[in-house]
Design a protein around this nucleic acid. Structure first.
Lengths: 202, 202
DNA sequence: ACAGGCTGACTGAACGTTCGGTAACCATCA
DNA sequence: TGATGGTTACCGAACGTTCAGTCAGCCTGT
């Protein structure tokens, strides 16, 4: 960032830029995202953006941090008492059964950004971190379920990785194909996978 | 395509363009793919490309058809006698346990192209078709397994969709994160999922 | 002679980035 | 009080580059 502000979080101007970037992303998609378009959404000149960030890449990396923050906040609500519910909660957050417009848009933005991770190492590290975070969260819930005796004694890591891969795949399909029915079906199938794999048969 | 050639398949000139496009994609990635770069790989001028195709989009849509063809050929080798082996074969083709450089590159190209499906309807339709094709292939193997009595009487569509989502998610993670170990683990976990879900416990 | 396949030079638009300037707001000190 | 100087946040215009796409003309084989 250009200004080394002492703040822990985002200051006002930068938050506004992040939101403008988000709007521009929604309106034009990652491929057609330009400094001009972000500036238009911000209702400032292009140069204003260069006052706050050194380059387009700099701005975009900052935005990715912003977006990942949001995404992580979304999934990490406080955990309840029942591991079953917690697991279902995480899945519903990541892969809503019937996503509203806002959820759909956020996911589209994430998929768009993610495609950049193929060639941009800073992006790749962020998504590596994000995926790891999701797996760890899932793992912990499963472990707690095992400790509480409501889940069978499985390998939490293995199950968590499997769940995460399935979620990612479904999200990906939703964003890049017209197979919405298949996505919904997979979402349901995932619940039944958890049921048969984790739940104790009394 | 610009030329309405009566040929069923690709003629020589077009095949060379497709291969040049593939090389350019590997060398520069989708984001930095330009007509000039394809022309460089082809060792012809830009205008030569415009002789064969009306626009960049036209060329790219043709290339996607070409790539999807290749991908489908890859997975649809003749089916053997054992549904277990066939299933494992399809999975290994789509998600090699230890992919060589060529497989890795093809997958990267596919993920790059796929990100375009978010905004380009022609692309989206192609990937919808491709995913559907994979699910159907998987479904048929499972159905055959059930008929032969080697698989339990499950819902083939549901299992096939689940497998496909998991494969897609893992492939996606491989292309966009540094979690190669997790990808390999998920691949193994997928086999064990099939084992516990499909195989008859005698 | 002529058509198919191609070239090289070009255009206009869009892009990221830089730069000179400026208005608003501060603190300092006479 | 009010002049001085510095800082922050911004603007408009321009720069160099790259891009998709066009076009007049040139080979080469028939």
């Amino acid at each position: 960032m250009a200004t080394d502000s002492p703040d822990e979080k985002w200051n006002t101007a930068e938050t506004e830029i992040m939101q403008a970037t988000y709007r521009a992303l929604l309106a034009h998609g990652y491929a057609d995202l330009s400094i001009s378009r972000i500036a238009d959404e911000l209702d400032k000149s292009k140069a204003a953006l260069y006052y706050h960030y050194d380059s387009k890449d700099d701005l975009l990396v900052a935005f990715l941090g912003f977006a990942v923050d949001r995404f992580e906040t979304t999934i990490s609500t406080e955990t309840g008492a029942d591991p079953n519910d917690d697991l279902e909660h995480v899945i519903e957050k990541l892969l809503p059964l019937r996503p509203d417009e806002e959820q759909r848009q956020l996911q589209e933005v994430m998929v768009g950004l993610r495609s950049q991770a193929m060639t941009n190492e800073a992006f790749r590290e962020q998504f590596t971190r994000l995926d790891e975070q999701i797996v760890i969260t899932t793992e912990e819930i499963i472990q707690r379920g095992i400790d509480d005796g409501v889940f069978r004694d499985v390998d939490p890591t293995r199950i968590a990785e499997h769940i995460q891969a399935t979620i990612n795949g479904t999200m990906y399909a939703r964003a890049t194909t017209n197979r919405e029915n298949a996505a919904a079906a997979t979402r349901v199938s995932l619940s039944s996978y958890i049921d048969s794999e984790l739940r104790r048969n009394a």
